[in-house]
Amino acid sequence: MNPVALVFLALAMSTDAFAAAIGKGSSLHKPRFIEALRTGLIFGVIEAITPMIGWAIGHAATRWVENWDHWIAFTLLVALGLHMIWNGVKHEAEEEEKPQQHSFMILAVTAVATSIDALAVGVGLAFVNVNILVAAAAIGLATMTMVTLGVMLGRVLGHLVGKRAEIVGGVVLMLVGATILYEHLSA
């Protein structure tokens, strides 16, 4: 995977966490940077681990699907992109109750929920030539940065930007999938 695609993948993987972080930040009274960084670290570590787990699962299945690997990666990324876009445009029926503070467990559960797509991306990455440690580190660092910024911006921006970020992330994921397919078919 070329470095530009890797950067876009890492940013796309962090957009749902960014959207969640804006919500978390908007639910706190003037969050401090240390709380934002703590939240970013929790999300970043979890988001870095999940693609490695997915990669291990996908790598175990590589020999059975080698001729179709590029189509699998493309399909997974497009499906995840469409799912992110759908989540970005659907209307929430009810507003979440705002907590007074965020415990480690609540942040970890939220981070796991937003990293399920990274697990699926990890499965797709097993079928392309990519260093999973570099990809996971890039995804984790991008997520940590985006979540830290998201918490700090949350008190100002609220939910307005969160949904749009998820839509952009979905489009980027679909473009990364199309790039993988194009690179394989044109080789």
Rank of each mutant, 00 (worst) to 15 (best):
T39R: 00
G44K: 00
H70L: 03
G88Q: 01
L82D: 07
A111Q: 09
P99A: 03
F127Q: 05
M52H: 04
G81I: 09
H102S: 12
A120W: 03
I53T: 09
A135G: 06
A56N: 08
K90L: 11
L82K: 06
E97I: 12
L37P: 08
I46N: 04
H70A: 13
V65Y: 11
K90Y: 08
A138L: 13
V134S: 06
V65L: 15
E47D: 11
G54H: 07
I53G: 04
V109S: 08
E47S: 14
E94C: 07
A126K: 00
T62C: 06
T110W: 02
L80T: 03
R38M: 05
L125I: 03
R38E: 10
I106L: 13
G40K: 00
F43C: 02
T62M: 12
V78I: 15
A48H: 06
A61M: 15
I106K: 11
H83R: 08
L125Y: 01
M52T: 07
V134P: 00
V123T: 10
R63M: 10
L133S: 12
A93N: 06
E94V: 13
N129G: 13
D69T: 08
V45M: 14
E92C: 11
A60T: 09
V109M: 13
A136C: 09
I49V: 15
A118N: 05
A93E: 13
A135V: 04
A111E: 00
T114W: 04
I46F: 07
